[in-house]
């Protein structure tokens, strides 16, 4: 054991204090939001400076926020987007990653190039907007007992915020790297047993790359949860708005939504409107905090895989 020099001890003390301060700076804004959301609105709004506990205790902001129909529909839309979008994304990304990781396919290189090129060059926001506006899917439908394809333009449907972004090229590369690390011998022995590509992908590669699939599932999940911009340009109907877009409306566009503070004493409206904002932040962040331990475990792994070659 080497004895520590006094300058070393000084450094360690400084470092410990600095790191503690960093933790405080990171956490305090979140804590403040929490404390503000439970405060009595009128006392909160006349208060200046830091909060260490809620000013009084009131859940009026939460009652108002939960009663707001847009928050409920926002949650519903967001969950639809995460579940349907997540499933579609993971499926297509797995297929793409599988294709890009097969060394024996002749078109692997040109198709991989076509995909990776899009990370570096694009037509821009406006042409993308037009492409989505003009995108029509054909759904099998039964009309009067006859089987027909029904044309559905995705503009102003939740598919407009799923399909156009359902493959993220960065995630694709992460997954391809994961698939490539599976030894070829496993696949070859399956092929000898007569397994086709479908079997190899779904029965062998995907189960073996469970951890990688988990990483990209979480990447997509968080991506869909956080996304708001495409919803703002492709969803005209506000009952379709996902939670983040509703939140933007409450926090950044309307200072106080009139329907949320209806029935509140006129003199208290401003105050209640403020604490509603804090309550909305809490409501929209708590779900992320619940899955955070899981996220942290897998995300860190994903950063490493992506860093190998990205």
């Amino acid at each position: 054991m080497i004895k520590k020099s006094s300058s070393r001890i000084m450094f360690e003390v400084f470092n410990g204090v600095f790191m503690t301060a960093l933790v405080a700076v990171t956490l305090y804004p979140l804590l403040y939001v929490m404390l503000a959301s439970f405060s009595e609105p009128v006392r909160f709004i006349s208060h200046k400076g830091f909060l260490l506990r809620p000013l009084g205790f009131s859940t009026v902001a939460y009652k108002r926020a939960f009663d707001h129909p847009m928050i409920a529909s926002g949650f519903k839309n967001t969950f639809f987007i995460i579940i349907v979008g997540g499933a579609l994304s993971v499926l297509l990304t797995s297929i793409g990653a599988y294709f890009m990781s097969r060394k024996n396919l002749m078109l692997r290189k040109p198709i991989s190039f076509m995909i990776i090129f899009t990370m570096f060059f694009g037509g821009g926001l406006i042409p993308f907007y037009f492409a989505v506006r003009n995108f029509t899917i054909f759904i099998p439908w039964i009309v009067n007992g006859a089987f027909v394809f029904k044309a559905l333009n995705i503009y102003n449907t939740l598919f407009a915020v799923i399909i156009p972004v359902c493959i993220n090229t960065y995630n694709l590369i992460v997954l391809r790297t994961g698939f490539m690390s599976i030894p070829d011998s496993i696949e070859e022995s399956a092929k000898i047993d007569g397994a086709g590509h479908l079997t190899v992908l779904f029965k062998i590669i995907m189960p073996l790359a469970k951890a990688n699939i988990a990483v990209i599932t979480l990447y997509y999940g968080v991506g869909y949860w956080n996304s708001w911009f495409n919803a703002s340009i492709f969803l005209a109907d506000n009952t379709l708005h996902p939670l983040q877009l509703v939140l933007r409306q409450i926090l950044l566009i309307n200072s106080a939504d009139s329907s949320m503070i209806a029935g509140v004493d006129v003199s208290d409206r401003l105050a209640v409107g403020e604490t509603i904002k804090y309550a909305s932040i809490v409501i929209a962040t708590v779900p992320i905090l619940f899955v955070y331990p899981l996220l942290q475990k897998y995300f860190v792994k994903g950063v490493m895989v992506g860093a190998v070659k990205g």
């Binding site: 297509l92 297929i95 599988y98 037509g123 993308f128 493959i167």
Partner: peptide, 19 residues
């Protein structure tokens, strides 16, 4: 299998490049 992936890139990345 990979056809939908190619169509995705063709429509949402290459069509806008043309656009």
């Amino acid at each position: 299998l990979v056809l939908p992936v190619i169509l995705f890139y063709a429509y949402f990345s290459y069509v806008p490049m043309y656009g």
